[in-house]
Design a protein around this nucleic acid. Structure first.
Lengths: 127, 127
DNA sequence: ATGGGTGCAAAGTGTTTGCAAGTAT
DNA sequence: ATACTTGCAAACACTTTGCACCCAT
């Protein structure tokens, strides 16, 4: 039941995330949205991020510093740079079987797993 | 260079974490420490958790809700219950090779990766 | 007219920090 | 003496919420 955004504000939030591939934080999205329309409030951006995530149109990435958002629909792993906070998608497949295995082993019903690789990006290594 | 805790407060914080296997949050640790000595402040607990993590005597587990702490020294994965927030260690080995692979593929220098399985624990499934 | 969405300011969490006083070596 | 640690309160970063108003159906 994926509905399209029903307000201008919602659409702008979605567009802002789509327009970036660097996993922006809520506040970066707010700033991008503000650059387009400076009458939109921070709470509206936060609220709409939550709505869009609930609708399944965006995904929230949980990182050591804060939550980030992405448009890419498939589950995947992430790389986090401890130096500059940059985030990128990891070149690894998401193994669904692992969730099933874990469910069987532990009795949990597993919805997903999240993986974050932490290290220094090439730029930060030079410094 | 693992030094033993040098103050009573530090020792109590370490003891409180050691005494639990349920990955307590900073505030739960604060409460446990308070139960032993009610003159210890919240900031002292937070500060000492940071010190102990920096010393390598404790490990910080990054979870969707807040940071948790554990004494177990080896890297491993975690299970997080979306219902009640319970955390446990996952029965899976930590593959060091994966960090090397990722480093080669991406140019990052990888320090570690963190894995959290999210789902419902057996108790929460019943509800 | 009804239900959802908005902006604003205030409140909420979880954590850190400035500071003056205290403690250990 | 020196460097480190404490308790307190205030500050912080990030996010959510109460409320009155607005908009679209």
């Amino acid at each position: 039941m994926k509905q399209p955004p029903s307000t201008l504000q919602r659409q702008l939030v979605l567009d802002a995330v789509k327009a970036r591939s660097d996993h922006p934080s809520a506040d970066q999205i707010y700033l991008d949205v503000r650059a387009v329309n400076d009458r939109i409030s921070r709470s509206t951006v936060y609220r709409n991020l939550n709505v869009l995530v609930r609708m399944g149109m965006l995904h929230r990435v949980k990182l050591p510093d804060s939550d980030r958002y992405e448009y890419r629909p498939d589950k995947h792993y992430h790389l986090f740079c401890l130096g500059c906070g940059a985030v990128s998608d990891a070149p690894l497949d998401y193994p669904d079987e692992l969730d099933e295995e874990m469910a069987i082993e532990t009795g949990y019903s597993i919805e997903r797993h999240r993986v974050v690789f932490e290290g220094l990006c090439p730029d930060c290594q030079k410094r």
